Deep mutational scan, measured.
Amino acid sequence: MPSETPQAEVGPTGCPHRSGPHSAKGSLEKGSPEDKEAKEPLWIRPDAPSRCTWQLGRPASESPHHHTAPAKSPKILPDILKKIGDTPMVRINKIGKKFGLKCELLAKCEFFNAGGSVKDRISLRMIEDAERDGTLKPGDTIIEPTSGNTGIGLALAAAVRGYRCIIVMPEKMSSEKVDVLRALGAEIVRTPTNARFDSPESHVGVAWRLKNEIPNSHILDQYRNASNPLAHYDTTADEILQQCDGKLDMLVASVGTGGTITGIARKLKEKCPGCRIIGVDPEGSILAEPEELNQTEQTTYEVEGIGYDFIPTVLDRTVVDKWFKSNDEEAFTFARMLIAQEGLLCGGSAGSTVAVAVKAAQELQEGQRCVVILPDSVRNYMTKFLSDRWMLQKGFLKEEDLTEKKPWWWHLRVQELGLSAPLTVLPTITCGHTIEILREKGFDQAPVVDEAGVILGMVTLGNMLSSLLAGKVQPSDQVGKVIYKQFKQIRLTDTLGRLSHILEMDHFALVV
């Protein structure tokens, strides 16, 4: 994948999101292997301009796509893939009243899908469409860049269908997702969380590099694949309309690839034109409109599966009536509230959605109805927002919020430890010299600072030695090549209790 991002070429006709291997024109390309080798690009942008032909009021008969309808489940399912879809609609009884809503608040519980998330729908649909058009064949390999849930859905379907599955996901995604993927037989590649989507090191860039190296491999490409919004247009939206008897006044959905909100909203605009569509985008993402909503100094966020630093091709923002931004604290607070007060075992993005819903639905009156999409299960986040310690460490809970008995030293300040200034190293000294210094002084790690004293990161003896043994660096290389740029900081005025929580999850903390 090139470091400079080429513009994806656009073909003359058809839909841009065809499933299957992508040609340089962004659509299915038939021909000899030699032709494909000559024409197939190194990668295709996940934010390529959409060429979708959908228009409100256009006859369904003019759609270029294969459409399906929700099917009634048999008493005995032939395999677990038949437990994807037909998820329950559940009334939220307490939270709406707590925040003064007059309307009825309903939750579409997508964590009841077989793999635990709304992404099971698009995973199965992308595979079925690729099999139907002859792209996927027995023994082929599926590769997908994902925040985890699409990966789980694909790995689940691949396990049943017999495909090899490789999932490329950023490091910030939970260990629970990784464990589930491994249990399903998927191979996992992790990428830096802070890598831009168009960087060769991003999950998108690495996935395309693997595709170019592995024979008979395919990126189904949830960011561009029409099967993504079509899955929701054909099934999720129809289920909502049936469950609500066609009567709903507002739908609120958090947005990642945009397939969920695009597919549902398009069908609702056709069948229930008075329904307002509300999009939820986390602070630090750029999906919301108008652009002024996205202006923030924050560039990272903890909530998973929603928000991006690019506009995915499948996201149709014209069908969203209003956007709201959400933050991590309210997302996790509301997710825990949904679990504790409503018994809905949902993930953090569901918290984002409901946090926005109780604001947006203030305009609705008694007798009206708001539906929220709860995308995934708490299963993926047992060591994250479900953990009091994690919430404390991230600053989303305060010590006084917890009532468990603490040891005698818990409320003492870090400054009472009488710490001395640490050994520091410059980023320009060599790895070999740094190892000598650390061994001589008896230290395992040291902060790396520039000549102005600005902290650049941390270097550890173990990481340097393993990097040297693996051949990633040489003793003569500058130590700046092996620094940890993500590390926890703590102030002298913070409590030892807070430091204790940090050290339970990290090997060190830097006192500043």
Rank of each mutant, 00 (worst) to 15 (best):
P2D: 13
P2Q: 12
Q7A: 10
V10G: 13
S19D: 09
P21S: 15
A24Y: 11
G26Y: 08
E29A: 13
P33C: 07
E34H: 10
E37D: 12
K39E: 10
P41T: 13
P41I: 10
P41G: 08
W43S: 06
I44N: 11
I44E: 09
P46V: 06
D47C: 03
D47R: 05
S50M: 05
R51P: 07
R51Y: 07
C52H: 03
T53Y: 04
W54A: 06
Q55C: 13
L56E: 10
L56N: 09
G57V: 09
S63N: 12
H66Y: 15
H66W: 09
A69R: 09
A71M: 10
S73Y: 13
P78H: 10
K83Y: 10
I84P: 07
I84D: 08
T87R: 06
V90D: 05
V90I: 01
I92L: 04
K94H: 13
K98V: 12
K98A: 11
G100R: 05
E110R: 00
F112Y: 03
I122E: 00
S123E: 08
R125L: 07
D140Q: 04
I142W: 00
I152G: 01
A157S: 15
A157P: 06
A159M: 06
Y163A: 00
V168F: 05
V168G: 04
M169C: 03
E171D: 10
V178W: 05
V178C: 07
V180G: 02
R182C: 12
A186G: 06
I188S: 05
R190L: 05
P192E: 06
P192Y: 02
A195P: 03
E201D: 10
G205V: 05
L210E: 01
K211P: 09
P215G: 06
I219S: 05
S227L: 03
N228K: 03
P229C: 05
T235A: 09
T236G: 06
T236P: 05
D238T: 11
Q242H: 13
C244H: 05
C244Y: 01
L248N: 01
V252P: 07
S254A: 04
G256D: 01
I261Q: 01
T262C: 09
A265T: 14
K267S: 03
E270G: 06
K271D: 03
C272T: 10
P273C: 13
C275H: 01
C275R: 05
R276N: 13
